[in-house]
Amino acid sequence: MALAIGAAGMAASAWAQAVDPDQTYTVPIYVTGSHSPANYQIYVSQNADGSDAVPYLFDTGSPNMFTVQGTNTSIAPTNTFVFGDGDPVYGYYVEGRSLSLTTKASVQVTPVVSNFNTAMVVQINGNTVASSTPLADGTYGDFGAGLYGTSTLSTLLTALPIGSNARLGYVVNVAGISSGEGALTIGLTQQTIDTLTNSPGAIQLHMNHSGDQIQGPDGRLITGYLKGVAVTTVTVQTAEGVASADLATVFDTGGGPNGVIYYGNSSTPPGVFDGYLPNGSFSLTSPDGETFDSWVGSSPWGGSVAVIGNQAPSENRVNSGGYLFENYVVMYDLESAVLTLVPVPEPSTWTLLAVAVLLVVPAVIRRKSRG
């Protein structure tokens, strides 16, 4: 199956020529309240008119879109992909698809990006997966919103055309929502950047470039970032006392309830985290000493501390857990390489944030009929 290299933005390019200079998009994120890895869902259509959209796990810890929708199970997988500790193993082939983001009611919010390379999942752990049938979590796959893909297989978010006055980046806002509807803002206006950056308690982290190129708007390539998009200090309780290490940190909407440390080239928790207490304490601290994630006994979603070995030293990292996004509005500014965490605001500042981020009217795309 030939890859659709370089063609990802062809349809989007035509749209960009007519787009408003300040164009951004606000797409619903549906919070299921299940406190599981599939807690956050986003709807994607593979039709030119945006119809028949289905839910996907909105996953900032994954680099691209994996789908069972419209797959051809007679095609053998050409590659595999795993998350976390390596189970399950997804077998897929790559195909160019026409994709747009919508509401739950299939109202189209973004333009269609044609021929966008998508991982078509046909096997899980070697077993054939039925086409266009929901997976066990009720989704049709994984909508990767991570920034560590490749030039031929990466996130749709960076391929969508934005206005010339907007900056590359996006805001994930499900803060304070245990179930219901949040928002994903694609493209950053200066007002959004200023409002979030200057919000009370905002924490800024430098984002780590990967050195790789990923698909950008209008078919061009942009700089990607590592899976561990920033470095923080993780501190846990062990049988020998408190242990800390500076680790690349994955801010992962699909991370589930646990605080997970992937560490060391060993089958058991090695070195500094040896003897960690699953029901002990866990915290993440910025390089400036600001603690933004801290709990004792169990996480906000009832999870625990986990340390997983067998990691190459270059892959040492910590996963924040999906619950972090219920406590923070998270902004990824790809042009300044800054990740901003804004805590759930007090009522006095909520209105200001709403104006800048929450109440942006989605730009609904209406296809013009041909006369």
Results as ranks from 00 to 15, higher is better:
Lys227His: 14
His206Ala: 15
Val272Ala: 07
Gly70Trp: 12
His206Leu: 08
Asp293Leu: 12
Gln237His: 04
Pro77His: 05
Gln204Val: 07
Ser51Arg: 09
Gly289Phe: 04
Ala175Leu: 02
Leu184Trp: 03
Val360Met: 14
Gln108Trp: 08
Thr24Asn: 04
Gly309Cys: 07
Gly70Lys: 14
Pro313Gly: 05
Thr253Pro: 11
Leu334Lys: 01
Ala7Trp: 06
Lys368Trp: 11
Ile308Met: 07
Trp295Arg: 10
Val113Phe: 06
Asp288Asn: 14
Gly176Gln: 01
Leu358Cys: 06
Val122Gly: 05
Ser369Gln: 14
Pro257Ser: 12
Thr67Ile: 12
Asn127Phe: 08
Ser131Gly: 00
Val121Asn: 06
Asp252Val: 10
Asp274Ser: 15
Thr128Met: 02
Ala136Trp: 00
Ala245Cys: 04
Thr26Val: 13
Val361Ser: 13
Ser62Trp: 00
Ala76Lys: 14
Ile75Phe: 12
Thr80Pro: 01
Arg367Cys: 03
Asn279Pro: 02
Ser244Arg: 11
Pro77Met: 06
Ala119His: 03
Gly255Asn: 11
Ile186Thr: 05
Val330Lys: 01
Gly211Ser: 06
Arg317Cys: 05
Ile308Lys: 08
Tyr262Met: 12
Phe58Pro: 01
Val361Trp: 10
Gln23Glu: 10
Ile162Trp: 05
Met331Ser: 01
Val54Trp: 00
Ala16Val: 01
Ser314Lys: 11
Ile308Arg: 08
Pro300Ile: 02
Leu277Arg: 11
Asn327Arg: 15
Ala183Phe: 03
Val89Ile: 10
Gly163Gln: 14
Ile193Ser: 04
Arg220Gln: 14
Arg97Trp: 05
Asp252Trp: 09
Gly50Ile: 00
Thr189Tyr: 04
Asn79Leu: 11
Leu352Gly: 13
Thr192Ile: 13
